[in-house]
Amino acid sequence: MKTLGPEDIRFTRKEPNRLSAILSDGAVLEDVQIASLFPLRNPESILSVYQGTGSDRAEVGLVVEFESFSQEQQQMLRDYLAFSHFLPEIVEVMRIMHSAGVDEWNVVTDRGSKVFYLSDARNNIVVSDDGILLITDTDKCRYRITDYRRMRGRSQLLVERALP
């Protein structure tokens, strides 16, 4: 396992949402991609740095100490992760309307307000032991609630009513 620290790799941003990297030996890696190994529970704990897609995907190494990078580098990586891993966090549930087997959810997320439709809650709402809810809407887009038990009163009540 090749680990990468700030002394091994430095990330640069050429354009919004495109990263390059310079290794300690001076090699320049164009178009690197970053993926979190634990995107749901601990997105910044370990990151995979890789290039290419599909069968050409090659991992450059793993960032295991995210905090050891400078604030600027951390923010760059955070921005990239936010771009490449789209999983809106529902922070407030305004309304859930039940109608004919499909529920209309009107929510506020960390990416803005959204109205989506959910059918077959039994299969499209997954609850983990630690209270993480993953919701898949009728367009196959996913939303997350980190811990529905800690939501504000009305939001929690609405979510609990919608649980399968």
Partner: peptide, 9 residues
């Protein structure tokens, strides 16, 4: 089209 997680570009 570049496929990401939950989105594409």
């Amino acid at each position: 089209l570049i496929a990401l997680v939950g989105c594409s570009a």
